[in-house]
Structures are given as structure tokens and as C-alpha cells.
Design a protein around this nucleic acid. Structure first.
Length: 416
RNA sequence: GUGAGUGUAGCUCAACGGUCAGAGCACUGGUCUGUGGCACCAGGGGUUGGGGGUUCAAUUCCCCUCACUCACCCCA
């Protein structure tokens, strides 16, 4: 085989795409019922946008971005996530002036240069939302309710919602300092990665899976004990709201997000059914991001869902089957039936036919293989008698239909 | 980026270093000339991922490379 797709970049074939389509439809309909509108953002942006937005020392920016020189020498990057571009668009088009709160969703491919493995690809699809302009805990609750509604809608129910609060500009620096002071006394017990994390992102140590690190992390000061009064109240109201809506969740005080911009509420939805890459959706509040990217101080919250991961959990997705298969014998039958076929399709009926010119047996075989519900047979005999034969493929029952009346009775049967 | 495992037909997999690399499923045709699923028969399809080496002889052993898989890391 001469050409193949680039490593970690996959084709999604018929048979696989149906779950993706269903998920996208579900997300669209749920989001729009919550008053969110779609925004189509570019697939690449100026590199600096991501460096500033995501954080210069994060793994994504340090080693996972697809960055190129444009023809004029400008650095451009294939988007590794959607929040920074959406915020850029929000600022660029001054959406803050058009409404007090802006609720947006997006979907499409993201790109990260990681080593592929189960549930991890270099081009992968995300569906995300961003609600900009309010820091009220009600919005946190709504966003989470909306996220859970999508899972409900597509029948993915064995998921776990974990939430945490990371504090804000007022209290997080203090907590960070306390945490580092504690970790300093245990530095020797950390794994190699955590030795490094101590410098780059000490909060991540809370999240380490290694035995030794976990033991230290277990006794580490909790971020929740160091929240300022405002953050504590906010978190409490988020939890109250979730309880009122009967949305099950667990507080995980070791939950840390990898992107720098998160403040206060952070959350993650995981499943036990996917192997190591078990996060199917994640997000949080980012009250400083808009300002960081050059806009007016504006709070925001959002999440992203991993499309492939969720689609792989969806069950019972059927590939579409033809409503009716036209088994046509002879050129005259084809000539006469083609307008009927086109009219049916114009009404949204799925019509298939044979293109090989084979005999009836062969055409029936094809109809069966395609899973057609009905087969309409028209050959010389039918043209002569003026009656087509309609066969119900499941029951084998056959009935005659007058050719001259054709599209209508057929449509009625199919729709019933 | 690190580590381990795996690459043979469209798919799932066989083949002690030794004849012409096989099977099931799928596909095509036939038994059955106007009625699908079943059965039987026949057929097409392979640079054994690629390159190099060892050997009289390599799908098999060794090296390199590419890809895939899983895990670490990270994350959706």
C-alpha cells in the first residue's frame, strides 16, 4: 500500500461515523435548548494565542502543538483546543457588547502531537461550550446539567462526574505556597515526574498515580481548605445546585486540570470502560482568561467532550437501511421507474437500486444485504400488467401496486 | 518523548528454518434463465509492512526502518 494516513490521524468510516453523527445531533439539540449558539472557529490560529491562553509551560504548548511557519513567516498552530479561539473571537467581535452573557458551542477537530494509544489521537474531535459574562454559580450548574443531559441523551450512563474548586486569583497563590512548603519536606519520596512537577505545576502532584506520591498527596493540604470566602461560597452553591437537580457527583479535591486558565470550578467526567484514557469530558471556570487574552475582565466557564471516546461507549447505533429497494429488470423498467425513485428520494425516502444489471435473484440478494425493508419489483410482466410487486422483506408478504399511482401508495406504506 | 508487544488475502488467524504460503468469513460465478437469508461446487485475490544480513534454503533467525496496539507521560 503506497499511501496511508498520517500517524494518529484516522479515517472515520461508514459504520463508525453513525455514533459520531448521533452524538453531534444530541449535543446540538441539548445545547440549543439551553440557549447556546454554534460558533464556527478556524482550525488554525496564531501560535501566540495558544501559548498565552493555555499557558506557556503546559505540555500542550511545550511539546504537543502542530506549529508551522506561514508563507510570510508568521507562526501558526493547528488548534489543540477550542477555548482560546472562542475567547479570541469573543473579544475580536466584541460579543460582550451584544448581550450580557454569551453562550456558544463549537465542534470539530483538534490537533495534538502525542503518541497515539487507546482513545488518544493526533487529530481528534471535540464538542465544547463556553459561557462568557457571568461568574454566578447558577451558570456552573447549568453547564454541568447540560453536559450530563447530552450523556443521558445518547444513552451513555455509566459515567462519573467529579468536581473540585481550584480557587481564584485571591486564594490560589496562597494555597500554592502552602502546598509547595508541604511538598518540600517530602521531595525525596517523589517519582521523577513529580520532582519535575514540583517546579512546573505542583498541584499536579495531587493527581499522580504512583504509590509513593499518592501517600504524600493523601496528607497534603486540600485546596478546599484554603479557599477564600467567595470561592468557598461559590463552590457550595454549585454543589447545592447540582443536588437540587439531582445530578450525582463526587468531590475530588485532587482533581487538577492541565490547562493554566482554570479557576474555581473544575470538573471531569470519567468512565471505567475505556482503559487509561478514561476522561470523556472535562472543563471548568476560567475567570481570568478573557482579560489575559486582551479583552475586558470577563468570567467564563466551559467544557469539552471527547467525541471518539464517547462515541465508542454508545451502543445500539444502527447503520441506516434503505426503506425500499427497486429491483428492475430491463431497460424499460429502469426508464419508467427512475422518475418515481427520484420523487421518493425527494420526500426523504431512502431508495436503493441495482447498478449491475443482474437478474432478479441477484438483485434480491443485494436488497437483502443492504437490509431493505421492502423491495419493489418491476419487469416486463409488470409493465405489461401495469402492476408492480411490493415485497415485505421480513414477512415475505407481497402485494400489487398500480404503476400509474406509484409514488403515493408506496410512500404511505413506508411511512406507516 | 520513554517502554513493551504485534505486523501473513478485504476481515479474523494458521504454517517444526525445507515442495507451489493455507483455512474460515467476505467477495464473484454456478447448482437455481423472474423472488433474498440456507446448502453444495467452483473461482479471483498475497512483493508474508519495507530494506538489509545470516543460511544450500527465511513467513520463520538477526539488525534497521515504518506502521499498528497497549502502557507511561499527558489529556478529550
Amino acid at each position: 500500500m503506497k499511501f496511508q494516513s498520517i500517524r494518529g490521524v484516522n479515517d472515520i468510516l461508514p459504520g463508525e461515523i453513525e455514533a459520531v453523527q448521533r452524538l453531534e445531533e444530541a449535543a446540538r439539540s441539548v445545547f440549543e435548548s439551553f440557549g447556546f449558539s454554534e460558533i464556527r472557529i478556524p482550525i488554525f490560529e496564531v501560535t501566540e494565542l495558544f501559548a498565552r491562553g493555555i499557558g506557556a509551560t503546559t505540555d500542550i504548548v511545550e511539546k504537543e502543538m502542530y506549529t508551522f511557519d506561514d508563507r510570510d513567516g508568521k507562526k501558526i498552530t493547528l488548534r489543540p483546543e477550542g477555548t482560546a479561539p472562542v475567547v479570541r473571537a469573543y473579544i475580536e467581535h466584541q460579543l460582550n457588547l451584544k448581550a450580557p452573557v454569551t453562550k456558544l458551542y463549537y465542534l470539530g477537530p483538534m490537533f495534538r502531537h502525542e503518541r497515539p494509544q487507546a482513545g488518544r489521537f493526533r487529530q481528534f474531535y471535540q464538542i465544547g461550550v463556553e459561557a462568557l459574562g457571568t461568574d454566578r454559580p447558577t451558570m456552573d450548574v447549568e453547564v454541568l446539567a447540560m453536559l450530563m443531559a447530552v450523556f443521558q441523551n445518547v444513552g451513555v450512563t455509566e459515567v462519573r462526574l467529579e468536581i473540585n474548586s481550584l480557587g481564584d486569583a485571591a486564594c490560589r497563590p496562597h494555597y500554592r505556597k502552602t502546598l509547595k512548603a508541604y511538598f518540600k519536606t517530602h521531595l525525596a519520596q517523589f517519582c521523577e515526574d513529580c520532582q519535575r512537577r514540583y517546579e512546573t505545576n505542583p498541584m499536579r502532584i495531587l493527581d499522580c498515580k504512583k504509590e509513593g506520591c499518592r501517600a504524600v498527596a493523601a496528607k497534603a493540604p486540600s485546596p478546599l481548605d484554603h479557599l477564600c470566602a467567595e470561592c468557598l461560597a461559590h463552590f457550595q452553591q454549585v454543589k447545592d445546585g447540582l443536588n437540587r437537580l439531582k445530578i450525582p457527583f463526587v468531590v475530588n479535591e485532587h482533581l487538577v486540570r492541565g490547562l493554566d486558565y482554570y479557576t474555581r470550578t473544575a470538573f471531569e467526567i470519567t468512565t471505567t470502560k475505556l482503559g487509561a484514557q478514561n476522561a470523556v469530558a472535562a472543563g471548568g471556570r476560567y475567570d481570568g482568561l478573557v482579560e489575559e487574552l486582551g479583552g475586558p475582565p470577563t468570567p467564563g466557564i466551559g467544557f469539552a467532550m471527547g467525541v471518539e471516546r464517547i462515541a465508542s461507549l454508545m451502543e445500539g447505533i444502527e447503520t441506516p437501511r434503505p426503506d425500499v429497494f427497486f429491483a428492475l429488470l430491463g431497460e424499460e423498467a429502469v426508464r419508467q421507474m427512475l422518475p418515481v425513485i427520484v420523487r421518493l428520494r425527494g420526500h426523504g425516502v431512502r431508495v436503493e437500486m441495482d447498478y449491475s444489471g443482474g437478474g432478479l435473484k441477484k438483485q434480491m440478494g443485494l436488497a437483502d444485504k443492504l437490509g431493505a425493508r421492502y423491495t419493489l419489483m418491476v419487469g416486463e410482466n409488470e409493465l405489461k400488467s401495469g402492476k408492480a410487486i411490493l415485497r415485505d422483506m421480513a414477512t415475505k408478504a407481497q402485494e400489487e401496486i398500480l404503476l400509474t399511482t406509484l409514488p403515493d401508495p408506496l410512500m404511505k406504506i413506508i411511512r406507516s
